[in-house]
Design a protein around this nucleic acid. Structure first.
Lengths: 203, 203
DNA sequence: CACAATGATGCAGTCAATGCACTAATACAT
DNA sequence: ATGTATTAGTGCATTGACTGCATCATTGTG
């Protein structure tokens, strides 16, 4: 599993991320070219796009893993859990994961700033949110099967993710601290899901 | 207001959109270059980017106007309306606007297909949704002022927009008819806002 | 009728992103 | 151990999105 090959690949990827963050922080996103990042990481320009599909993706280095955390949480739900409980738990775990990775090393702060200032980053992050939504909705349907209409599953997940992201961006724009941002995200999740809970009980 | 200059500008813009849709339908999005679109519209390549910031933006030709419809609906809310009523009304008007413009001329169908197949389109549309959310949230705060926490306003709008968009994409992927897609979007909006209503009443 | 504002255009240039061919290191099977 | 298949990294060439700048022509204005 953890072969030497994969270790090295992971290492070069980490080098690219580290070099990218340093350069972007120093020069800004637009002024930093993919070639520069590769050069700073002592790698070929071509190699950058071997690891990241777009220049913006370097800011989503841990995003796939984070989505997997949510999907796994849904798959490993306790037997009697309702959809609401499962979804809230999954979102909480994703927020925790974000805290222990991106927030911890400052990636989250940089990304947040760029979301507000660079349209391309904003677009790529928003797109990723959509993809994550799809995966979460699929996981929900896999777990609850016929009890859950596909469109309803998508709408529920969309509401939660939309609320959490919007709260995060709003808190950011208001200059709130990372802790307050996190709090805003958690409250938004509970708020969005709480409402679904009411609907769910009405069935 | 409706000067000759603006008329002509609007006209060239419409030509670009028409040419783009024809070409994209025939060749696909990736195979169609901005230069080709301009040429088909009998305009200079440079002119394309005078009207659209990105190639994807041609698919969002009426998006700014649609957002304005929502913002205006919020601004023109009846005196006693609750936040929920106002928001639901705004979203309904936006869905109606989409029906009478993009759905009517087939733009919506093409866009929906491209969202599912072209990452760049997906990204740009998602980004636009974020921007629209910001404007709607600002309008809400302008109308309700101190009664509405900025983060809560953003979260509410994010939940509704997220739910509606997710429902639309899910309905699309399931091959539902435009009418069914519209129905799914309306139900998602009511669902997402209905939950907020519960929260609102609990205050 | 000047004069300011602005839409369309041409030109040159930057840079993201991709396809292809190639090397070298690693994994794997006999 | 040795041959063989993968695959990460690289170089090269190319396409095409997008921008800055300078210019021309048309329209709005006093």
């Amino acid at each position: 599993m953890a072969g030497l090959r994969e270790m090295k690949k992971r290492r070069t990827r980490d080098q690219l991320v580290a070099a990218a963050l340093t350069l972007i922080r120093a020069q800004g996103f637009d002024k930093t070219t993919a070639a520069q990042i590769a050069e700073a990481a002592e790698l070929s320009p071509r190699t950058f796009f071997l690891h990241f599909a777009t220049k913006e993706d370097v800011l989503l280095a841990n995003a796939a893993e984070r989505t997997a955390v949510g999907v796994d949480a849904i798959a490993a739900r306790p037997p009697g859990a309702t959809v609401d409980e499962t979804l809230l738990d999954a979102v909480r775990r994703m927020i925790d994961h974000n805290d222990s990775t991106d927030v911890a090393d400052g990636l989250a702060a940089l990304r947040a700033e760029l979301i507000a200032t660079v349209p391309a980053v904003r677009a790529r992050v928003a797109e990723h949110a959509l993809t994550a939504q799809d995966e979460l909705a699929d996981a929900l349907r896999a777990g609850y099967g016929d009890d859950l209409d596909p469109i309803e599953a998508a709408a529920r997940v969309g509401a939660v993710v939309g609320a959490v992201n919007a709260a995060m961006l709003a808190a950011l724009r208001l200059g709130r601290s990372p802790a307050d941002q996190r709090d805003a995200m958690l409250r938004a999740a509970e708020f969005a899901i709480g409402s679904e809970g009411a609907t769910s009980q009405a069935r």
